[in-house]
């Protein structure tokens, strides 16, 4: 997914991607990434967990405004099935 992200950024469109595989992301180096230690198939969290999905999406989109350093990997502490999303 990182290669695809890099191609989109290279044409001049800013990008942010969720990653569940930090080691891969470190190698492929997309411009901005948000890492979650979640199982595959759950980049936005759990089914029908609207607050969780909104929080993750907003955090990721916010990175488009706040991240200034290419290659930044954000790591919010939203622990799988532990974090309470308000």
């Amino acid at each position: 997914m990182g290669l695809l992200q890099r191609a989109i950024e290279a044409i001049g469109i800013p990008t942010i991607g969720i990653t569940l595989k930090k080691e891969v992301t470190k190698k492929v180096k997309p411009p901005r990434a948000l890492y979650l230690h979640y199982p595959f198939g759950h980049p936005l969290g759990e089914a029908f967990a609207v607050k969780q999905q909104r929080t993750i999406l907003l955090e990721a989109l916010g990175a488009l405004e706040t991240v200034k350093e290419p290659g930044t990997i954000l790591e919010p502490s939203y622990r799988w099935r532990r974090h309470r999303f308000e």
Binding site: M1, L4, A7, I11, G12, P14, T15, I16, K21, G41
Partner: peptide, 27 residues
């Protein structure tokens, strides 16, 4: 194929669609 063909093609399409930022999700 992805790097040389399909990824740049999608990038061009996104530009044409008027996308000003892109959010990507993996499996």
């Amino acid at each position: 194929t992805l790097v040389e063909k399909t990824a740049p093609e999608v990038a061009r399409r996104l530009k044409r669609d008027g996308a000003e930022a892109v959010f990507l999700t993996p499996a």
